[in-house]
Amino acid sequence: MKKIVVFVLIINTLFLSHKIASADSPITSTEFYEAYMDVKMVQRAHLQSVLGFEIAEFLSSPENPIDEKAAVINALSWKFEGNNNAEFYMYYLALRYHVPFVQLDTDFLNADEIFCLGYLMAMDNFSHPEDALPILEEAYKTLNNSFTVSMIFALVKSQLFLSMDLCEVWKSVEKVLMNEDLKQDLRTEAKKKVIDYMAGYKEYCQ
């Protein structure tokens, strides 16, 4: 499990100036939350764009499915100047598990919470996906049978290839699409929105 060092790095990352390269990216342009607008908390996240206490509770509740949690985070969206939603969620988690903020580490969290924290980090600072990947990878080790988790992990990884190999941007997602063993826990319309955008990178594999 990732120890407190990771969380120190997260905190430092959140307070760094954001070097935003482009809003046209796998992380920011796959707005699959639109397929979940019948979910009250997705509606709230879309309207507020800021993670509040009720949204944090929703993300941590074991009663809520992982695809709806992902849709909530997707609906919170992004800003050019960056968001602090991952930081807010960390404060909530510290309160939830009755530990000082600076002592919080992933040993306290369940896999869903680790995934949500990693995805929030990716949305907050989408020009630096490498900061979120260690957290998402840890969640993926437990939740690797989930199509939703696998796809989000792939989207964040694909962001790394934007300035190197655009074909690899598509291949990261294609591997998930080709995996027939995954639990199809993302709504069909949401999956289509992701594929429709990411297919634009497929032409670079010609």
Rank of each mutant, 00 (worst) to 15 (best):
S22D: 13
V102T: 14
M151H: 01
F147G: 01
F101N: 14
L120M: 09
K40Q: 15
Y204F: 15
L9M: 07
W170N: 11
H98M: 13
S172Y: 08
S17Y: 10
K19R: 14
F147V: 00
Y140D: 07
D112E: 15
A75W: 02
D67T: 11
E174Q: 13
H128F: 12
K3S: 15
F115L: 03
T106W: 04
V42Q: 02
L117S: 00
N145Q: 14
F101P: 09
L143S: 11
L120R: 07
G118T: 02
Y197R: 14
M123T: 08
L117Q: 00
V39E: 14
V42L: 04
S25Y: 03
D38A: 13
P134E: 12
A190F: 01
I195E: 10
E57P: 02
E130V: 05
F126A: 12
V42S: 01
N85K: 00
A70P: 05
P26Q: 00
E81F: 05
K2Y: 13
E34A: 11
T142W: 05
N110R: 15
T13E: 09
F80E: 12
K2G: 05
E203P: 03
I195F: 10
W78R: 02
Y119C: 10
A35R: 06
K19C: 08
G82W: 02
V50R: 15
Y140G: 04
V173L: 09
N12L: 11
V8I: 01
S158L: 03
V50W: 06
N125P: 00
S17R: 14
Y36M: 09
K171H: 07
W170E: 11
F108T: 12
A21N: 10
V8E: 02
V6M: 13
K191I: 04
A86S: 15
W78P: 10
D24F: 13
K141A: 13
L14P: 00
E54I: 00
N64L: 10
A21F: 04
A111S: 14
S163G: 04
L14M: 14
M164C: 04
S61K: 09
S25R: 08
E87D: 05
E137H: 10
K157V: 01
F115W: 02
D196M: 05
I66E: 03
E54Q: 06
E168Q: 13
V149K: 07
Y119H: 12
V72Y: 09
V5C: 03
D124I: 01
Y97W: 07
W170L: 13
C205D: 15
V99H: 07
H98N: 15
N110V: 15
S172T: 08
K69E: 07
H46Q: 13
S77T: 07
V156Y: 09
K19L: 12
A94L: 05
N85P: 00
L160W: 00
V99Y: 07
C116L: 03
I195G: 08
D107P: 06
Y197M: 15
L51H: 08
I10C: 01
D131L: 05
R187W: 03
D24A: 10
S49V: 07
I73N: 01
A35V: 08
M164R: 11
M178V: 04
